[in-house]
Simulated scan of single mutants.
Amino acid sequence: MNHKRIALLAWLVLAGTTALPALAADLYVIANPSLALTADDIRDIYIGDKQIADGVKLVPLDNSAQQKDFLEKVLKLDGAKYNGIWIKKGFRDGLNAPAVKSSDAEVIATVKSTPGAVGYVSSAPKDLKVIVKY
């Protein structure tokens, strides 16, 4: 039993140290290839001020694995302020906050298959449009 605890503790320490470099990783904002967006559009999309581009309804996606970095680097907001913006948008304008995906792979798959989708990931996919790198 004691060996299992030591192995678990070692695994947790190793997992924690390998996750640290990801905190400083780059972020790539990606979009469905049908969209023509600029870096200036990203903030407006993620706070609900821009909802249509090229005649297509925009579908912003949050990535739970990268959200904290995205909010800090791109939107210059913390999680509470971001959620507050969307609560107000929901009551005032009837808008829904971006859907939250759990990983880069899930964001990439959704962006590929959804016209109007915009998301952010930690590494640039080869087959999708990168709008901006942070």
Rank of each mutant, 00 (worst) to 15 (best):
L37N: 02
L35D: 02
N32R: 03
G79A: 12
D44T: 03
T18P: 01
V56K: 05
P115V: 09
K89N: 08
D41L: 02
S103T: 15
V59T: 02
G119Q: 01
V130R: 07
V56L: 11
S103A: 11
V100A: 09
A24Q: 12
V59Q: 03
Y134M: 13
A109D: 14
A24F: 13
N83H: 10
R5W: 07
A124R: 05
W86H: 06
A25H: 11
S103M: 13
G55F: 01
D127H: 05
Y46W: 15
L71S: 05
K112A: 12
M1I: 06
V100Y: 10
D78A: 00
K126M: 10
Y46F: 15
Y82R: 08
L61I: 15
G55M: 07
V107Y: 01
V13D: 01
K4F: 10
A65C: 00
V132C: 05
I131W: 00
D40A: 14
A124I: 11
A109M: 07
S102N: 14
F70E: 02
V132D: 00
A124S: 10
Y120L: 09
Y46Q: 06
G90D: 03
R92H: 00
V107Q: 04
S122H: 10
L27Q: 09
A99D: 06
A15K: 08
P115H: 07
F91T: 13
F91G: 13
D78Q: 00
M1F: 09
Y120I: 06
A65I: 07
L95Q: 15
K4A: 14
L8S: 13
T17W: 10
